[in-house]
C-alpha cells in the first residue's frame, strides 16, 4: 500500500514536471508545425539562470525563479523573431537539423559561462521538510510541484478556453491561413505562444531540477523524454500532454520501483504501444 501510494505520488509529481516542460513544445508543434528539438534548451537556460541567481548572486528562491522565467521568455521572443520564423517554412528534416543546431549553441553557451558540471539550484529549506497529509507524509518539494503543475494546467485551460487570446490561438492551430485572413494577428500569436511555452519549460526545468538535474547537456539528455510526451499526448493538445505526462510519469516511476533493472524500457514500450494503436497520439486531431 505504501509502495503504491509512493509510486502514485512520485509518478504524479514527475508527470507534472514533464507536463510543464512539454506543454509548450506540444503547442508549438501543433501551432507552428515545428519539431523543436531545442525546447529542452529553454529549461536548461531557466535552470542555469536560477543556478546563477541563487548560488552566485545569492538572491532568494522565489525572486530568482521569477527573474529566470522572465529572462527565458525574453530570449525566446528574440529567438522566435530571429531564427524560428524562418524555420516554420522548412521541411521536417531541416527543422530537426536547425533546431539541433540551436540546441548545440545553447549547450555551448551554458558550457562557456558555467562549465559542464552539475548546476545545483539552492532551494529553500522548506522544500526538504516533510508534510503530513494524514494518510501519509511526503516531501514538501513534491507537494509544491504537484500544486504548481495543477495551477498551471488550470491556468492554461482558462487562458485557452475563456480568453480572447485563447480563442485566437485555437483558431490558428486549427487553420492558420483562415485565422490570418479573418484578421487575427498570427505573427503576434506565434511569438507570444512560443515565449509562453519557453517560459513554462524554464519553470518546469527549475522546479524539476531535483528529478532531472540541470547541466549543460540537459537538452540532449532529456529531449527524447519531452518529445515522447508530445507524441503520446498528440501534437497541439494541452489536455493530451497533461494525461500523457502523468501516465508516462507514473509508468516510469512504477517501473523504477518494481523492476529497477529495466528502468526506461517500459516507458518506451508504453509509448510504442500508444503510437502503434493511435499514430497521432491520445488526443491528437491531425
Amino acid at each position: 500500500m505504501s509502495v503504491l501510494s509512493g509510486i502514485l505520488i512520485d509518478g504524479f509529481s514527475y508527470g507534472m514536471i514533464l507536463f510543464m516542460i512539454a506543454v509548450g513544445l506540444s503547442v508549438t508543434m501543433g501551432l507552428m508545425r515545428v519539431i523543436n528539438l531545442a525546447h529542452g534548451g529553454f529549461a536548461l537556460l531557466g535552470g542555469a539562470f536560477a543556478h546563477w541567481l541563487t548560488s552566485i548572486a545569492s538572491l532568494n528562491y522565489a525572486l530568482s525563479v521569477i527573474l529566470s522565467v522572465l529572462a527565458v521568455m525574453l530570449i525566446a521572443i528574440a529567438m522566435e523573431r530571429a531564427l524560428y520564423k524562418k524555420i516554420y517554412q522548412f521541411s521536417e528534416l531541416q527543422q530537426v537539423l536547425a533546431t539541433i543546431g540551436i540546441a548545440f549553441l545553447m549547450i555551448a553557451s551554458v558550457n562557456l559561462f558555467l562549465g559542464s558540471t552539475l548546476l545545483p539550484i539552492r532551494a529553500p529549506a522548506f522544500f526538504s521538510t516533510s508534510i503530513d497529509l494524514g494518510f501519509r507524509s511526503l516531501p514538501a518539494h513534491r507537494l509544491v510541484v504537484i500544486i504548481a503543475g495543477l495551477v498551471i494546467a488550470g491556468g492554461l485551460y482558462i487562458l485557452l478556453d475563456r480568453t480572447r487570446f485563447g480563442i485566437q490561438l485555437r483558431a490558428a492551430v486549427d487553420n492558420r491561413d483562415m485565422a490570418a485572413s479573418l484578421g487575427i494577428n498570427t505573427v503576434k500569436i506565434y511569438a507570444l505562444t512560443f515565449s509562453l511555452g519557453a517560459g513554462l519549460a524554464a519553470f518546469g526545468g527549475i522546479l524539476g531540477a531535483e528529478l532531472l538535474p540541470i547541466e549543460a547537456y540537459y537538452p540532449l539528455r532529456y529531449m527524447v523524454l519531452f518529445l515522447v510526451v508530445v507524441a503520446v499526448g498528440g501534437m497541439g493538445s494541452i489536455a493530451g500532454s497533461f494525461f500523457a505526462a502523468i501516465s508516462l510519469g507514473i509508468i516510469d516511476t512504477a517501473a523504477r520501483y518494481i523492476v529497477p533493472d529495466f528502468g526506461t524500457v517500459f516507458f518506451f514500450i508504453a509509448m510504442m504501444i500508444v503510437l502503434t494503436l493511435r499514430p497521432h497520439g491520445l488526443l491528437g486531431r491531425i
Binding site: E92, M271, M272, T276
Partner: peptide, 28 residues
C-alpha cells in the same frame, strides 16, 4: 515492420524509441 506503418513525427519518435530501448538493454 513497426516504424514504416507510421510517418512524420510519429516515425521520428518511434525510431528514437527503438534506439533507446536497445541502448537500455545493452546498458542493463
Amino acid at each position: 515492420l513497426i516504424l514504416l506503418r507510421a510517418g512524420g513525427l510519429t516515425l521520428l519518435m518511434l525510431s528514437i524509441a527503438i534506439a533507446q530501448i536497445l541502448q537500455e538493454i545493452a546498458n542493463k
